[in-house]
Design a protein around this nucleic acid. Structure first.
Length: 671
DNA sequence: TGAGCTTCATTTTTT
DNA sequence: ATGAAGCTCA
């Protein structure tokens, strides 16, 4: 398919900074991939001097595949396509010396971070999960704003913030001691480094001579700065975004960065992609009218050359069970009449808990479905265990990993032994693992504990030596075998079946690890540290293609639906307090909720159905929610109401009628 | 260490 | 209502 004029302009404008405002379904990925191809084929850029950055691994993978399709393997060789975090990791890896980290540093995920923080606060916060989360969020915010502990301490006003700032300082020191980084560090540290060190900055600026960024409205301050520093004075870059699809401000995204960009780069070329290739005219009209209720920095109006499409249905149901049954019934009959597939249908909701009723209903009707979210593979305890072992092999300063692993499976190394080991490590300012080899330890520990601990420590040393020396695959293999993990799982799981499941996960992980260590035609073998960080970043890329050929109805949150499309979309729970979520109403942040609704609507290709329940059991008792204001904001002529219509509009009508009657009575009385 | 009890919340999530 | 997660007592 040929590019439309706007897309073509976006592809061919390469002489300066470029902002592409790409509406939903306007072919932004096409623009990015074609632009990369254009740079290589027509503009004498080498692929290795181009970087494309995304937020998720999924998006990076998709982009890489599409570039490969247009450019071919040879011409795209060396092209850098990754998430922000993987890019940051690359910078850190290459600048280790300057930064003063040791090779083989660990990456801590969210859970590890929590654990570390609760240790730092002497477990004071362990029970107070809210406070712990608040602390973690605050630290994350500081890092996203590129504020180091020192400045955080200076600027803290309220006592709580001052305390948090102190903890932030200690947290960063602890991370250093562990030779570890958290996810936010992967952005903050390279950004600060590039800002301070002009040699390093120039090195990276000449490595990446053209930069493309996807989903720009989701960038936070540190990511914005990172991009700015990477492109430097030359400012050869293209960023693609849509302020109307900014739905992540609650985790630090600054859609204002789109505006900031035109201030930072006065020569910025702004290109709007307004033709939508996804949705039917009516859906688009509804989306446009809805989002027009939000204030805008950039005016943008999507249009479509597809059919008008059917009216948007608004279905009232008795309660949430009826809602679920109704939606499922609609899917069944629609599929039967139109001969579609299950995968053509998506049910979108605001909160994960809403999925349950729909699952139940789908299940009892024996309809295959796929649900997004839930416990992720990598937060399962068996996976975390194995990952901790690997981390310890790679980085013996990682006390976090040490503690997780030292007595799992049981090695008779109890809290008393660890307590003593810990205090020795503290006195000497060394890690727990290093403390195992202190002479002093023999005096402090009883024979049994000491022997158990030494047995473990020596075992780790031996394995890690082998892994470093190049016998990595065998070392990992032996490790998994020697810890007898399977036996441990059967012992500690509530049922044999659960143990089996968990062992299956472990085998899966093990298979990935061996594949990555071995390499294949397209991928060179990786070192163990590389494997560990890749796995922590969930960046498995080409491997492990979970090709989804299953034909199933899709259940997902509105957030998770961004970037996806379905022929037939059901948005359920269209109620005040639910779609504009109550907390957002209270915090007067309805605009982001409206964008969320906008994202949902623009997922639909052909038909869109909105449902709501007139009674909803919530928190134990029954409430009678009102139809979402967003439905009332849609063009009413394009809606088709079904079920007993009890909208706010009709309530208003009734009220007006009532008032009129009262007025009449008054008038009569006067006479 | 574990079954059974109480308590508790109940938006969105990636890396 | 409901389910998860922590907690207690044996």
């Amino acid at each position: 398919m040929k590019l439309n004029p706007k897309q073509d302009e976006a592809v061919k404008y390469i002489s300066g900074p470029c902002l592409v405002l790409a509406g939903a379904g306007s072919g932004k990925t096409r623009v990015i991939t074609n632009k990369i191809a254009y740079l290589v084929q027509e503009c004498e850029y080498q692929a290795k001097n181009i970087a494309a950055v995304t937020f998720t691994n999924k998006a990076a993978k998709e982009m890489r595949e599409r570039v490969l399709q247009t450019l071919g393997k040879k011409e795209s060789k060396g092209l850098w396509v990754s998430t922000f975090h993987t890019l940051g990791l690359e910078v850190i890896k290459k600048e280790l010396k300057t930064l003063g980290y040791k090779p083989g540093f660990s990456l801590l995920d969210d859970q590890d971070t929590n654990q570390l923080l609760s240790e730092l606060t002497e477990k004071e916060l362990e029970k107070d999960k809210d406070l712990l989360n608040l602390l973690k969020m605050q630290i994350g915010n500081w890092k996203n704003e590129l504020i180091l502990p020192q400045r955080a301490i200076q600027e803290a006003r309220e006592p709580q913030k001052a305390l948090f700032a102190q903890l932030y300082a200690r947290y960063q020191i602890q991370l250093r001691a562990y030779n570890a980084l958290d996810f936010d560090d992967l952005i903050m540290i390279p950004t600060l480094l590039l800002g301070q060190n002009s040699t390093v900055r120039e090195r990276w600026q000449s490595r990446f001579r053209y930069l493309l960024v996807d989903e720009y409205q989701d960038t936070n301050t540190s990511q914005y700065q990172l991009v700015k520093l990477l492109v430097g004075e030359r400012a050869r870059f293209t960023v693609v975004g849509d302020d109307d699809q900014s739905i992540y401000s609650w985790r630090g995204a600054k859609p204002q960065n789109l505006v900031l960009l035109s201030k930072d780069y006065p020569g910025l070329r702004l290109i709007k992609l307004e033709q939508n290739y996804r949705s039917v005219k009516r859906v688009l009209k509804a989306a446009n009218i809805l989002i027009a209720n939000n204030p805008h920095e950039f005016d943008k109006k999507l249009f479509s050359e597809l059919d008008m499409g059917e009216p948007i249905r608004v279905i009232a149901t008795r309660d949430e069970e009826h809602e679920a049954e109704r939606v499922v019934a609609e899917i069944i009959s629609h599929k039967f009449m139109k001969r579609t597939s299950y995968r053509d249908y998506a049910i979108l909701y605001r909160g994960n808990h809403q999925a349950r009723v729909f699952e139940k209903s789908l299940m009892s009707n024996r309809i295959p479905y796929k649900i997004s979210g839930g416990m992720s593979f990598f937060s399962r305890s068996e996976i975390k265990d194995i990952m901790a072992y690997l981390r310890l092999l790679v980085n013996q300063d990682d006390d976090n990993a040490f503690l997780r692993v030292v007595n799992t499976p049981r090695r008779e190394i109890g809290p008393v032994t660890l307590e003593k080991l810990g205090s020795l490590a503290n006195e000497r300012h060394i890690g727990l693992f290093a403390a195992c080899f202190e002479q002093e330890l023999t005096h402090r520990l009883a024979g049994r504990g000491y022997n158990a601990l030494m047995g473990f420590a020596r075992w780790v040393v031996e394995l890690s030596d082998r892994a470093v020396r190049g016998d990595t695959l065998e070392a990992v293999k032996d490790m998994v075998r020697e810890i007898n993990y399977e036996a441990y799982l059967y012992e500690s799981s509530p049922s044999a079946k659960a143990a089996e499941m968990r062992m299956k996960n472990v085998s899966e992980l093990y298979k990935w690890i061996t594949d990555m260590l071995t390499g294949d035609a397209d991928n060179p073998p990786m070192t163990l540290p590389e494997v560990v960080s890749k796995l922590t970043l969930r960046d498995m890329l080409e491997r492990n293609e979970e090709e989804d050929d299953s034909d199933a109805v899709q259940l997902l949150t509105l957030h998770a639906s961004k970037g996806l499309e379905y022929p037939h979309v059901f948005m359920v729970g269209m109620e005040e307090g639910f779609l504009p979520h109550q907390t957002s109403i209270d915090e007067e942040n309805v605009e982001e909720e409206r964008r969320l609704a906008y994202v949902g609507i623009t997922r639909a290709q052909e038909t869109l159905t909105l449902t709501y329940a007139k009674n909803r059991r919530q928190f134990g008792d029954v409430s009678t929610p009102e139809l979402s204001r967003f439905v009332l904001e849609l063009p009413q002529d394009d809606l088709h109401y079904e079920g007993k219509k009890k909208t706010v509009a009709s309530q208003n009508e009734r009220m007006e009628q009532g008032q009129a009657r009262v007025a009449n009575l008054r008038a009569m009385l006067k006479r």
